[in-house]
Amino acid sequence: MFETMPHYVFLFAMICLFIAMVLVLIRLYNGPTLYDRVLSTNSFGTHTVLFIGILGFLSGRPDFLDIALLYALINFVGTIAILKFFRYRAIGDALEKREADK
């Protein structure tokens, strides 16, 4: 009876993370301000990292954790890039402007 207990546990965590991702996506869809959407995107990325790890353990191949690590890196860089873009309306040329001001 309990031979497949780890599968049930990982499946439960996966369903929990899926419901949480759907809730965060609803907030992402009707967030009133921009910062709600950025926060929801960041939270969705964290959920995705955990989801990929759980999926690797559920399918018996924990090598998926490399993809989860890569996704965590991309998620952080993406959040900072979105914030910087909406602050300066450009990602690349803020430094050149500062040098031109001197």
Binding site: A13, M14, C16, L23, V24, S43
Partner: peptide
């Protein structure tokens, strides 16, 4: 793992 899943749902519900 079970409590981690529950915490994830709690955070998303609050958000």
């Amino acid at each position: 793992i079970v409590f981690g899943g529950i915490f994830a749902i709690i955070g998303a519900l609050g958000s």
